[in-house]
Amino acid sequence: MNLLNLEFFFILCGLLLAGLAVRIALDPVHPKRWGSALFWALLAVVFAGGKSLPTVVVGYGVLVMVVLAALRQVEPPHFALRDQAGLDASASRLGNLLLGPVLLVPAVAVVGGWLLGEIHWGSVNLVEGRSVSQIALGLGCVLAVGWALRVTRERPITVVDEGGRLLQLVSWTLILPPMLAALGGIFAKAGVGEVIAQGVAAALPVQSPLVAVVAYCAGMALFTILLGNAFAAFPIITLGVGLPFIVKAHGGDPAIMGALGMLSGYCGTLVTPMAANFNLVPVRLLELKDDHAVIKAQAPFAAAIWIFNVVVMYLCVYRFGR
């Protein structure tokens, strides 16, 4: 038995989202009042009640959220600009007190990640073992909200207003990461990966050791770009291209191939909109205008790192190991 599990934090999120939905519904000047309120209310229900609702109901709820977003019914209101002089004055008055709650979050996440899993009374655990790091992060955030309320002397309802303000900036991008996970799941069930791996192997002259390395690393990057997830690409491309051609045909070392192959996949992650939580959510969170600003900044990184991986793999995979 666990005293604290991830569901507790999902319910907290649900409460915050529900509060946001109510605030929007009560705001007569919100440009997309009812569409936005419905979107956040549905998300609140899915978050808090996801485990107990029938999956098909959640699915249709998600469908409605997607349609609302596609019809541009989920938009942030025009937030009034803040008074800069007041912000500066408050910054110099509160000073480093403002940093405390921000730094508390990683501190609790790290220390909690080590310790929380160890605490138990007989068969009663404090936290659920497999999600200990996420629970520690959640706990850090909850404590930090309490501390931030003390430092700023705000009323608790401000949590909904200020948190909601940022959530509305992130907007529907927030549900992209789980949506993409669902897409990846459907692709896997439909057997899309096998078709691609066969295509790569059939189209390229993988008889040459160099071409095999390039095809494997390119396959990892491209498939990661398509799926948005290197972990999903790895088994498919390694089974379809890596093992038969690099390891079996040319006697390459699987450990070197696997380590550098996964890192080549990450280069794909850097440049794909399918990796929404890394590349699209930050665009909204940092209030950037260009949806692809983060991807554009990362493209030179991806190219330089990918080429390096190919060179190191080619120079080492047939020479070292085993």
């Binding site: 991830l6 934090f9 999902f10 907290l12 999120c13 915050l16 989202l17 978050f47 403002l98 709650p101 921000v102 979050v105 996420q134 992060l137 959640g138 955030c141 909850v142 930090a144 909200v145 931030a148 309320l149 430092v151 700023t152 705000e154 401000t158 949590v159 909904v160 207003d161 200020e162 948190g163 909601g164 303000r165 940022l166 959530l167 992130v170 927030l174 959510v281 969170l285």
Partner: peptide, 13 residues
């Protein structure tokens, strides 16, 4: 989860 739980802290501060 990391985004939803963190935004109130950032927003307040």
């Amino acid at each position: 989860l990391p985004v939803i739980l963190m935004v109130p802290v950032i927003g307040l501060l």
